[in-house]
Amino acid sequence: MPSETPQAEVGPTGCPHRSGPHSAKGSLEKGSPEDKEAKEPLWIRPDAPSRCTWQLGRPASESPHHHTAPAKSPKILPDILKKIGDTPMVRINKIGKKFGLKCELLAKCEFFNAGGSVKDRISLRMIEDAERDGTLKPGDTIIEPTSGNTGIGLALAAAVRGYRCIIVMPEKMSSEKVDVLRALGAEIVRTPTNARFDSPESHVGVAWRLKNEIPNSHILDQYRNASNPLAHYDTTADEILQQCDGKLDMLVASVGTGGTITGIARKLKEKCPGCRIIGVDPEGSILAEPEELNQTEQTTYEVEGIGYDFIPTVLDRTVVDKWFKSNDEEAFTFARMLIAQEGLLCGGSAGSTVAVAVKAAQELQEGQRCVVILPDSVRNYMTKFLSDRWMLQKGFLKEEDLTEKKPWWWHLRVQELGLSAPLTVLPTITCGHTIEILREKGFDQAPVVDEAGVILGMVTLGNMLSSLLAGKVQPSDQVGKVIYKQFKQIRLTDTLGRLSHILEMDHFALVV
């Protein structure tokens, strides 16, 4: 994948999101292997301009796509893939009243899908469409860049269908997702969380590099694949309309690839034109409109599966009536509230959605109805927002919020430890010299600072030695090549209790 991002070429006709291997024109390309080798690009942008032909009021008969309808489940399912879809609609009884809503608040519980998330729908649909058009064949390999849930859905379907599955996901995604993927037989590649989507090191860039190296491999490409919004247009939206008897006044959905909100909203605009569509985008993402909503100094966020630093091709923002931004604290607070007060075992993005819903639905009156999409299960986040310690460490809970008995030293300040200034190293000294210094002084790690004293990161003896043994660096290389740029900081005025929580999850903390 090139470091400079080429513009994806656009073909003359058809839909841009065809499933299957992508040609340089962004659509299915038939021909000899030699032709494909000559024409197939190194990668295709996940934010390529959409060429979708959908228009409100256009006859369904003019759609270029294969459409399906929700099917009634048999008493005995032939395999677990038949437990994807037909998820329950559940009334939220307490939270709406707590925040003064007059309307009825309903939750579409997508964590009841077989793999635990709304992404099971698009995973199965992308595979079925690729099999139907002859792209996927027995023994082929599926590769997908994902925040985890699409990966789980694909790995689940691949396990049943017999495909090899490789999932490329950023490091910030939970260990629970990784464990589930491994249990399903998927191979996992992790990428830096802070890598831009168009960087060769991003999950998108690495996935395309693997595709170019592995024979008979395919990126189904949830960011561009029409099967993504079509899955929701054909099934999720129809289920909502049936469950609500066609009567709903507002739908609120958090947005990642945009397939969920695009597919549902398009069908609702056709069948229930008075329904307002509300999009939820986390602070630090750029999906919301108008652009002024996205202006923030924050560039990272903890909530998973929603928000991006690019506009995915499948996201149709014209069908969203209003956007709201959400933050991590309210997302996790509301997710825990949904679990504790409503018994809905949902993930953090569901918290984002409901946090926005109780604001947006203030305009609705008694007798009206708001539906929220709860995308995934708490299963993926047992060591994250479900953990009091994690919430404390991230600053989303305060010590006084917890009532468990603490040891005698818990409320003492870090400054009472009488710490001395640490050994520091410059980023320009060599790895070999740094190892000598650390061994001589008896230290395992040291902060790396520039000549102005600005902290650049941390270097550890173990990481340097393993990097040297693996051949990633040489003793003569500058130590700046092996620094940890993500590390926890703590102030002298913070409590030892807070430091204790940090050290339970990290090997060190830097006192500043």
Rank of each mutant, 00 (worst) to 15 (best):
A155W: 02
M89P: 00
D133H: 11
L101Y: 04
K30P: 09
K108F: 02
E201F: 13
G148A: 05
E201G: 14
A253W: 02
L136S: 02
V252C: 08
R266V: 11
V118S: 07
L105S: 03
G26N: 10
H17Y: 13
I142V: 15
A186G: 06
D179L: 06
S199R: 07
N225L: 00
L154Y: 02
P192A: 01
G185F: 02
K177H: 01
A71E: 10
T193S: 03
G31C: 12
S199L: 07
L268A: 04
N93I: 06
A207Q: 00
L248M: 15
G153S: 04
T5S: 14
E37T: 03
K271R: 15
A158W: 01
R209D: 01
S174C: 02
K39N: 15
H66P: 07
K267H: 07
Q55A: 06
A60C: 09
P6Q: 09
E9G: 13
N212L: 15
S199M: 02
P33W: 07
A253V: 11
I152W: 00
S50K: 08
N216M: 01
D129L: 08
D245G: 13
V255S: 02
T235D: 10
K25T: 08
R276K: 11
I261Q: 01
V90T: 07
A231G: 13
G274K: 11
P12E: 10
R196M: 10
V10L: 15
T5R: 09
V178T: 06
D140A: 09
P16T: 05
R224L: 04
E201Q: 06
L124E: 11
P74N: 11
N93L: 13
G139T: 08
P192S: 11
L251F: 06
K211Q: 13
T68N: 15
T193P: 10
P6W: 04
A237Y: 05
P2R: 15
C15G: 10
C272Q: 09
S63T: 11
A237P: 06
H17P: 13
A130D: 07
N113M: 06
P170C: 00
P78E: 07
C165Q: 02
G116Q: 07
P78F: 06
I142D: 00
G259Y: 00
I92C: 07
H218L: 09
N225W: 00
E144H: 03
L184R: 01
G274V: 04
C15V: 07
R161Y: 11
N149S: 02
